[in-house]
């Protein structure tokens, strides 16, 4: 009798525990994904009636200069954002010592990650200001003319990425610092006996042991790069003339900004971004699946 009740309880219990979380997730995450896919098939200004137009939004998208600019910038973001990983590793190696006050140093180096991207964006806009920004004050000091980073299509994306790398590097640094704590001293010793030094030591002995940290660092950096919205909204609003847009920002611009009334078109952009992200989701889940099995 008692055993039987237990049995039933064990069957029902997980669903009861899952219910509230799943319900919320369903309403706010799962269903909206499909709703957006649906909206992307309509011409809709968000106010009046929707008109079904099939794949027209996508057709238009593939003939839209701004879409390709955004896509190109997304790729630049993805590639350059990866610099946060070696940079974070470098700082982690640099700080991984035991001297007086090192804990405080580690915390302060981590600082940029804790503050909002809005603040980071403001700080860097100011750093780049062509008339009095610190960067140009320094350039002028060395006799170089000011560069209006955020107003020049050649530099603007790189300028924003540099701002983004600041907190992202701090993030990677902390991942590696934790990873370094777990590095096996015996293997280091063994490596030393094999006469491994400097780069060789790093490459063949230390890095393999940091693999979990590197994996997480790659995952968070890719997400960070594809989510790049805040900095662009704060620093340039996509400008000059749309040259610093990425898909995430372009979508917002089309659907919600002052002049944006194209919900369907915006949704189509979001779907493309989602599909790109899906590649990483698949990559991550496969890896997780293997770990779970192994």
């Amino acid at each position: 009798m008692n055993a039987r009740r237990k049995f039933d309880q064990k069957k029902i219990a997980p669903w009861l525990f899952l219910a509230p979380g799943m319900l919320m997730f369903l309403i706010y995450v799962i269903i909206p994904v499909f709703q957006s896919m649906n909206i992307s098939l309509y011409d809709w200004d968000g106010l009046g009636e929707k008109t079904f137009i099939g794949m027209d939004n996508y057709v238009e998208l593939f003939d839209d200069e701004a879409f390709y600019t955004s896509l190109k910038n997304n790729i630049i973001w993805l590639v350059l954002y990866m610099l946060a990983i070696p940079a974070g590793l470098f700082i982690a190696l640099f700080l991984n010592q035991t001297v007086f006050g090192i804990r405080l140093y580690k915390s302060l180096f981590f600082f940029p990650f804790v503050i909002s991207q809005v603040v980071v964006g403001l700080v860097f806009s100011w750093f780049y200001d062509p008339s009095f920004g610190l960067m140009n004050v320094m350039l002028n000091f060395f006799g170089i003319d000011s560069i209006a980073v955020l107003a020049d299509e050649r530099y603007v994306t790189y300028g924003i990425i540099a701002a983004g790398l600041w907190p992202q590097t701090a993030y990677c640094m902390i991942l590696y610092l934790t990873g370094l704590n777990a590095v096996d001293p015996e293997q280091i010793e063994a490596g030393r006996l094999d006469n491994a030094k400097g780069w060789r030591m790093l490459w063949y002995v230390v890095l393999p042991q940091l693999k979990p940290a590197t994996f997480i660092a790659i995952v968070v950096t890719v997400i960070g790069a594809l989510r790049s919205f805040d900095l662009i909204a704060i620093m340039t609003a996509g400008g000059p003339w749309g040259s610093s847009r990425v898909l995430a920002f372009y979508m917002y611009e089309q659907a919600f900004s002052e002049y944006g009334f194209r919900m369907g078109y915006g949704a189509a952009i979001a779907v493309v971004l989602f599909l790109i992200m899906l590649v990483y989701i698949a990559f991550f889940l496969t890896k997780m699946y293997r770990d779970e099995r192994g």
């Binding site: 062509p130 008339s131 000011s146 209006a148 955020l150 107003a151 400008g239 000059p240 003339w241």
Partner: peptide, 9 residues
């Protein structure tokens, strides 16, 4: 050169 330099900033 009538307009302010770097006006896009």
């Amino acid at each position: 050169d009538f307009f302010l330099e770097n006006h896009a900033a």
